[in-house]
């Protein structure tokens, strides 16, 4: 889908979360320790802009659209 390696890793984690409210920002940070907070936020913004993911109960929880 034209993702960078970081974007793909963020997307894959979001997609794999079974929770109704989606994955939390804290969980993403804990699972992607080699990425900076800035990098994760940048990946999230790209995925939101492209309609791949969306925020759920607040701006810190995410699910994927497909």
């Amino acid at each position: 889908m034209g993702f960078t390696a970081s974007q793909r890793q963020v997307f894959t984690l979001i997609k794999s979360c079974p929770l109704a409210e989606g994955i939390s920002m804290q969980c993403l940070r804990n699972s992607l320790k080699y990425l900076s907070f800035y990098d994760i936020r940048t990946c999230l913004q790209f995925l939101i802009n492209e309609g791949h993911i969306y925020s759920t109960i607040d701006d810190c929880h995410f699910k994927c659209t497909n």
């Binding site: 109704a20 409210e21 309609g51 791949h52 969306y54 759920t56 109960i57 699910k63």
Partner: peptide, 29 residues
């Protein structure tokens, strides 16, 4: 975890908005 009806409504609303955005991006190529 169980979500309230309001939370479920908000999530579905955001999901529909994201789907529309995805369709828009695909249409743009």
């Amino acid at each position: 975890s169980s979500l309230t009806a309001e939370q479920q409504r908000k999530i579905e609303e955001n999901r529909q908005r994201a789907l529309a955005r995805r369709a828009e991006r695909l249409a743009q190529g």
